[in-house]
Design a binder for these strands. Structure first.
Length: 261
DNA sequence: AGTACCACCTGACGGC
DNA sequence: TGCCGTCAGGTGGTAC
């Protein structure tokens, strides 16, 4: 799940439930999820502190504290966030639990262990060291156009390149390209000015719509294909059959009729 | 520079 | 029922 819209929804959920509550403990179910830190470091850094605010860049979620440390969450291919009322028994997939003095718990859920939890001092240097591109929602049209300049790659690969712009993953890349009526394998150097413009507009629109709909694909507009990622599904525009191919190794759905190469 | 392939993990699903 | 291969909304490394 966790692409930009999903992470943004998690972030808002955390804002709604888990800010300004004193942290009493941190427990870790599987230490493999911790990167560059340890359970004892986590406890030491967070006990007695509160999460003061959250932020996000691409698929990374930052939980800033009133201390020196910031918790970084990345979900990998699976995962979500859950705020528990007091006394909820531990589920196997809850990898890290932040316990609050009021008895409630903020839980980092991660089925496959591809996600990670970190502790950092400085967000900017983290972003720099990881070379995380500008957030897709923050990018201006001019910046977007700059990114495409003198570049030669398949448009879907470009959208998913987190070093260029961050937040777009496999599913939303397909939706953006479908809404833009651009073939996923089209080379960015062959895009017309109006296609670039369309791509940018749809990137924003699809992302914002997904957030507005709380990333519930069932509530997405009928004209979307995100909830149609299965063999044999029909294109909501032309009624033809959606095709499944691989692009940079990832399963890709598109309409061969509406998105000509 | 861009792409293909593999690895990291676990769970769900279809075929036998 | 159970085993097995395949696949999955991400990222990082390697090799061409």
């Amino acid at each position: 799940m966790p692409e930009l819209p999903d992470v943004e929804v998690f972030r808002r959920y955390i804002n709604e439930h888990a800010l300004k509550q004193k942290i009493s403990d941190v427990t870790v179910n599987n230490t493999g999820i911790l990167k560059n830190t340890s359970v004892s470091n986590m406890k030491k850094a967070l006990k007695g502190k509160v999460f003061s605010r959250t932020s996000r860049r691409g698929k990374y979620c930052f939980l800033e504290t009133n201390g020196e440390d910031t918790v970084v969450l990345h979900f990998g291919m699976t995962g979500n966030i859950k705020y528990h009322e007091n006394g909820t028994p531990l589920d196997d997939h809850e990898r890290v639990r932040f316990h609050f003095e009021n008895g409630n718990i903020l839980s980092f859920v991660n089925v496959r262990l591809l996600g990670e939890v970190r502790l950092i001092k400085d967000k900017d240097s983290f972003v720099t060291s990881k070379q995380i591109g500008s957030d897709a929602l923050q990018l201006s049209y001019n910046q977007f156009r700059q990114l495409l300049q003198r570049r030669s790659s398949m448009v879907k690969s470009m959208l998913m390149n987190q070093n260029l712009l961050s937040g777009i993953g496999n599913v939303y890349a397909d939706e953006i390209l479908y809404q833009s009526r651009i073939h996923p394998k089209k080379n960015v150097k062959d895009l017309t000015e109006s296609q670039v413009k369309k791509l940018y507009t749809m990137m924003k629109k699809v992302t914002e719509t997904a957030i507005k709909k709380n990333v519930d694909a069932g509530k997405f507009p009928h004209s979307y294909i995100t909830h149609r990622r299965e063999e044999g599904e029909k294109c909501p525009s032309c009624g033809g059959t959606l095709e499944k191919i691989k692009v940079s190794g990832r399963p890709t759905y598109f309409c061969p009729k509406c998105q000509e190469e």
